[in-house]
Design a binder for these strands. Structure first.
Length: 531
RNA sequence: GCGCGCGUAGCUCAGUUGGAUAGAGCGCUUGCCUCCGGAGCAAGAGGUCACAGGUUCGAGUCCUGUCGUGCGCGCCA
């Protein structure tokens, strides 16, 4: 149908020609031409069984492809402020980014996993004051009220005590200008250590932690500005007042602006505040220039959906800084609704009832957390029910997929006990011709989809596709399994039928390989048995 | 007011980068099973893909507009 115009022939005629050429090919069982100009190909069962052989030969590299051609890609994810432990809100983007990074690495990209540490803003000063308060408290010298807008976390009590034990009253009467940097640095170090601990518990390991302050100290910010200046993209100007909301504080002040509108942004963006301080956005320029200079021409930022307003300006920034050499894809993750048996789990910071990521991991396990985070597209809200996700039922996708893997292992153990098992090395050579049932072939066809799924997921930057695929694959397996109840001849292990048993063990192993590979890509460990 | 995302079966959601009769789970209807390797199994009904236009051989998918919904809207992060 696409060829009809250039070829100057009606689609149906072309289809007939192509169909004729296809008819003689091996593995082609039937070719039919349909209405507007479709060609329907039926492949022989033998072809599908050959796909199974490919899985067995490739093992855990089945589905792999060199789509990235070694191109460097930077994936920034998590990047939580170092002011407290990770909570469940950070979790989704973290899992998403990590799974995506795994996937891209699997598909031929040179992946750098980056954590950008916001150690330079007002937030960390607030942290410093909170630590200082706890320090005074530990000295029994606390002022009557904690500083306004502070971090009440218990971890800071511990840190305050530690500093009190080490430094005694050294900072008790010091001026804020003297103690602030010290307490800030101690606070950041402590929080970052906790964050890394929780990331480790989630099975996440970044390649690089980039400090915002460090970037500025190394002159990255000046360099970014120089580049924009050289391209005529900086100017002093007054922005129009934002419309829609009545803002009483608005004053027309000239600011240093980046002409982001030249790259599709809605309005030019300030790089310096009226007080002369760099804006957060200015530092983001440095951050992304840094990525570019480290060789990443492709970048992905994983952010919360509330950062949607940043997408245009960041893409503009990357285009401008790289002179069009680099591109940025921003993946926004929607909220996670925490539930407890259907009841919303209200998380209030003031009541100290924030659900930390660690709490959830301890409760349901890291594999469950990771899998569930990918059971929705990133731009759709997600329910996370602490009770449901551990249920052993059909509508719990984690269980359903893990159950499939465990079931296979169970059969394999039984096979070994009965002396029916084949050595792994012999599997690829197994005669698969006994696999003729429609349920078996359906399963094989599902397996054969794996490379396409991975390719699409990698190209679209959509790791959730893997989780959905694994669910479909598990369903095809369980369907075949259930057939064995009604039809004993479909069972996997049959002592009197060594040929079909061998073929089915090969099918099972291929299935296990794909399940395990898919699970590992999203960072979930396949289970050997259910507990 | 402007920008971005979302709107698909009663509910929760997929949809392979524009392909044919739009899929899955739950729920519902109807059958089956004392089953053993641990969630019981199977079949069926159910959709104007928010609405209206447009692009073309062909639209859930792309464009325009409308409605609904969520998020964001100089200097905070």
């Amino acid at each position: 149908m696409l060829l009809a115009k250039p070829a100057g022939q009606p689609p149906l005629v072309l289809a007939e020609l192509l169909a004729e050429a296809l008819r003689g090919l091996p593995f082609v069982q039937a070719v039919a031409v349909a209405k507007p100009g479709f060609i329907n190909l039926s492949l022989t069962d033998q072809f599908w069984r050959a796909q199974l052989q490919r899985v067995l030969q490739a093992g855990s590299s089945y589905g792999r492809a060199d789509l990235g051609r070694g191109q460097r890609i930077n994936v920034e994810y998590c990047s939580a402020n170092p002011t407290g432990r990770l909570h469940i809100g950070h979790c989704r983007g973290t899992v998403f980014g990590d799974a995506l990074a795994n996937l891209l690495a699997h598909m031929g990209w040179d992946v750098v996993r980056e954590f950008y540490v916001n150690d330079g803003g007002a937030q960390v000063d607030r942290l410093a004051r909170s630590v200082h308060y706890r320090y005074l408290e530990a000295l029994s010298a606390a002022p009557p009220l904690p500083p306004g807008d502070w971090y009440p976390s218990e971890d800071l009590i511990v840190l305050g005590r530690a500093i009190a034990a080490e430094d005694r009253d050294r900072w008790q009467h010091a001026a804020e200008a003297d103690w602030l940097p010290v307490f800030r640095s101690r606070g950041i170090d402590t929080m970052l250590a906790l964050i890394r601990e929780d990331l480790a518990a989630l099975g996440v390991q970044h390649d690089i932690f980039v400090s915002e302050v460090g970037l500025v100290e190394r002159g990255m910010l000046e360099r970014a500005l120089a580049i924009l200046e050289a391209r005529g993209l900086l100017y002093e100007g007054v922005l129009p007042a934002p419309k829609g909301k009545p803002d009483e504080d608005w004053e027309p002040v000239p600011l240093l602006l980046f002409r982001s509108t030249a790259f599709g942004d809605d309005v030019d963006r300030p790089l310096k505040s009226s007080s002369g301080a760099w804006t957060y956005f200015a530092k983001d320029l440095a951050c992304h220039l840094n990525k570019f200079e480290r060789g990443a021409h492709a970048m992905i930022d994983v952010l919360g959906a509330d950062h949607g307003g940043y997408v245009k300006r960041m893409r503009a920034a990357v285009t401008a800084l790289s002179d069009g050499q680099a591109s940025l894809d921003v993946k926004l993750c929607q909220l996670v609704n925490m539930l407890d048996a259907g009841q919303p789990l209200r998380m209030s910071r003031r009541a100290g009832r924030i659900v930390t990521l660690r709490d959830v991991i301890d409760e349901v396990g890291k594999d469950v957390v990771r899998f569930i985070m990918l059971t929705r597209r990133n731009d759709a809200p997600l329910d996370f029910d602490l009770v449901k996700v551990t249920e052993q039922s059909r509508d719990n996708p984690v269980f359903y997929v893990q159950y499939a893997h465990a079931r296979i292992r169970s059969v394999q153990r039984h096979a070994a006990e009965a002396g029916l098992a084949l050595a792994d090395a012999d599997l690829p050579g197994t005669d698969l011709s006994p696999l003729v049932d429609a349920f078996e072939l359906a399963l094989i066809k599902q397996l054969a989809q794996f490379p396409r799924i991975l390719a699409a997921a990698a190209q679209q930057h959509e790791p959730h596709r893997i989780a959905f695929y694994l669910g479909d694959l598990a369903a095809a397996f369980h369907a075949l399994w259930n057939q064995g109840k009604e039809r004993p001849e479909l069972r996997f292990l049959r002592a009197d039928e060594p040929a079909s048993t061998a073929a089915r063990l090969a099918l099972l192993e291929a299935l296990r390989i794909v399940l395990a590979t898919g699970l590992e890509l999203i960072g979930v460990a396949p289970v050997e048995e259910l507990i």
